[in-house]
Nucleic acid binder design. Structure first.
Lengths: 198, 198
DNA sequence: TGACAGTGTAAACAGTGGTGACATATGGTG
DNA sequence: CACCATATGTCACCACTGTTTACACTGTCA
């Protein structure tokens, strides 16, 4: 009975939040449950009242990450512009998300966590990839022509997004191609025009 | 003076080799220097005679990984087939590499290691991406037409490869698109035909 | 009030990467 | 051959990590 409060109250939320905040300036591997607990002025073993283990906390963080990503994609699509521009905006949003949340993106797609043990993550993951299919179908009704099935086109766009994002966070734009990172717009444009659409 | 040999002889090589072998059935995060040392019947601190730290060992492993990847791409390109088929084979090789070496691929591109501290890795990384440019240029002389610069086309192919590979190792082919993993050929075909070439 | 589930604490464990002092081995020198 | 510098391996520690177990406090509901 040394402290007046004793119970934290919202430890679960607080853990996810502070962990996500930590991710803004350090990678996931540098985050320790003990340090998080210190910041929240709580014994480090209290974490285990809310998460089975470290991975479970990571999973909760990734869940938020997917929600944010899906949100950003949806927002990018939400425009009056022609379908070509809208797709470009989605690609851009995807890459921009990776650029501004590299450490979160890393745990989402870097393979550090075994998603198959977290059904909620699997569902969100599928949801995010399915968005591409939805968008392509919608673009088709807006005048886009493609000989391939929508799902195939969507797959290609999805792969391009993934690849672009990967290269952005990997800082893979140095000598070989553009020096970009700043000019995502041009890259996204290249993605769209480089595809066999119209 | 309990052992006759005392000195291992090829500890450096042995460490990289056994670590790479371990990577075949477990991910990098599960590999510990101490366990490797035990397997080689050596004190775990002996590792530090050959590698500054754990990351340095990872870097050595990644170096081998790049060499293998570059080799496989080069081999895939080495054909008499028309350029379209050759590019497809390269894409396929890239994805196949990721599929058969997922844990190695993960440390190569998962962002766990800060490549900027290992010039040899940066060089190899650039080399592997530059191969795409070389191939596109060569394809151009073999009849491929593209309005864009070769480097742009190469960038798109590179992104597609990265994205495809990423999705393959992430086991992201379940409900949404194909059920593949088996049918890389069809996916690679889709990549090539989905692009604005000819 | 009293039982009780939820939550935080304390102590301890095994495992990790890493350091510094020391021991041994190796290979070249005189 | 003797000798010695250097490369390599060992040993004793350290700080830190995730995790478990037994215990203590808190709030709630009967």
């Amino acid at each position: 009975m040394r402290k007046q409060s004793y119970h934290h109250g919202h430890l679960q939320e607080a853990l996810v939040n502070i962990a996500l905040k930590s991710l803004e300036h350090q990678r996931a591997s540098e985050i320790s449950l003990r340090k998080l607990a210190v910041k929240l002025e709580v014994d480090h073993t209290a974490v285990y009242r809310h998460f089975k283990n470290r991975d479970a906390l990571l999973a909760a963080m990734i869940e938020v990450g997917y929600q944010k990503l899906i949100e950003m994609m949806a927002e990018a699509w939400q425009t009056d512009a022609p379908w070509r521009e809208r797709i470009k905006q989605v690609v851009k949003a995807y890459a921009e998300y990776a650029r501004t949340n590299p450490n979160l993106f890393e745990i989402m797609f870097g393979g550090a966590l075994d998603e198959s043990q977290y059904p909620a993550l699997q569902q969100l993951s599928m949801q995010s990839t399915n968005m591409f299919v939805t968008y392509v179908k919608q673009a088709q009704t807006d005048g886009m022509f493609t000989g391939d099935e929508p799902s195939k086109v969507a797959l290609n766009i999805c792969m391009l997004c993934h690849g672009l994002a990967q290269m952005v966070v990997g800082n893979q734009f140095k000598g070989s191609f553009a020096k970009v990172d700043e000019d995502l717009d041009r890259l996204a444009e290249g993605v769209v025009t480089g595809m066999n659409l119209e």
